[in-house]
């Protein structure tokens, strides 16, 4: 069992009160598993990804635990987390295009970063890893402005996984790319796992279609909570949660014309997390909702490895 997250609660401090971005989320990621994390903006997926490696100044760890390979991960303690960062948990950030310092040659930055973490550079290994994502060793002599967006993205992927972390958090890495680059990056990520360079991965995206291709398991989040978690094939073909169903129905398919049926969106918008309503948070937008939904549905394993938080599932 690589990663176990138990009842994790993370709030954002604001002047108007706490925003409950992550309100009791539990799940596990096994060795070699790629977990796809999907949901609308503001559902808590990026908050979850950040919580696993580095909370920003406004985030507060309210409760819950994270365990990695049997060790407790001190997510709320910025200093104590440093031992885990890079060595055991690493990040390919949303902002890969601007993640590299513009005034340092990439090779020098990697050397200085590794030295600061007490690791010496194995140049041969570094070149080999760059070759795996289709980059030549001369990239190390370049400044970031001399690389294209896709090259920067791949360079960051190589740097982040240089110390063979147990867990890689990939946050919206494909969102800014065109489809062919998306495919290349997705393949590269799966390749990292297949070669054992990272043990397991949390792949955060809003692209349900892409996730279902590369993830083993897909977890759908809604308003700071888990809605449904199932093997990728099951989730896309036999979803149980009404939110997942509507999310799938909202995906466009290439070549389908309007006369063959219109895409249905999801009416309404997610609730404010400043003071979320009691009970199921999808209730207001759910076509199936009834009185029972005023009570918060527990996460239930309805089939092997298939978890759903819905009374109707």
């Amino acid at each position: 069992m690589t990663l176990t997250v138990d009842d994790l609660r993370v709030h954002y401090r604001t002047l108007r009160g706490d925003v409950r971005a992550l309100d009791g989320v539990s799940f596990t990621v096994a060795d070699g598993e790629i977990l796809g994390l999907v949901g609308e903006s503001g559902c808590g997926k990026t908050t979850l990804g950040k919580s696993l490696i580095r909370m920003d100044g406004r985030m507060r760890h309210i409760g819950g635990t994270v365990t990695l390979d049997g060790d407790d991960v001190p997510v709320g303690d910025d200093r104590a987390m440093n031992a885990f960062r890079f060595h055991r948990i690493s990040l390919v950030p949303q902002y890969s295009m601007s993640a590299l310092n513009p005034t340092r040659r990439i090779g020098r930055m990697v050397r200085e970063l590794l030295a600061s973490r007490g690791v010496s550079v194995d140049t041969g290994e570094l070149h080999r890893r760059l070759a795996l994502v289709g980059l030549g060793p001369e990239v190390l002599e370049r400044y970031p402005i001399e690389l294209s967006g896709g090259m920067k993205q791949r360079t960051v992927m190589v740097i982040s996984t240089l110390l063979d972390p147990s867990l890689l958090v990939a946050d919206e890495v494909t969102s800014a790319l065109d489809v062919s680059n998306q495919k290349a990056v997705a393949h590269a990520l799966v390749g990292l796992r297949d070669r054992g360079l990272v043990t397991s991965m949390v792949f955060i995206t809003h692209d349900l279609a892409l996730t279902s291709h590369i993830a083993d398991t897909v977890m759908v989040m809604y308003a700071g909570r888990l809605a449904e978690k199932a093997p990728a094939g099951v989730l896309t073909t036999a979803p149980r949660h009404p939110y997942t169903r509507r999310l799938l129905a909202a995906l466009p398919e290439a070549g389908v014309r309007r006369s063959q049926g219109r895409l249905s969106g999801i009416e309404g918008s997610p609730p404010s997390l400043l003071s979320p309503p009691a009970g199921c948070r999808f209730r207001d937008r759910c076509p199936l909702a009834d009185d029972r939904c005023a009570e918060q549905p527990p996460v239930v394993e309805v089939a092997p490895r298939h978890h759903v938080a819905c009374w109707k599932a």
Binding site: I53, S90, L91, P93, T103, R104, L113, S116
Partner: peptide
Amino acid sequence: EADHSSYLSALGAPQRLIRRYAFRNAVL
């Protein structure tokens, strides 16, 4: 606050290194 500083922090680089990089850029 720039992205390249956040990235270094996320990879656990010490404050000293992050500040050194920031200083170098800020001097320009």
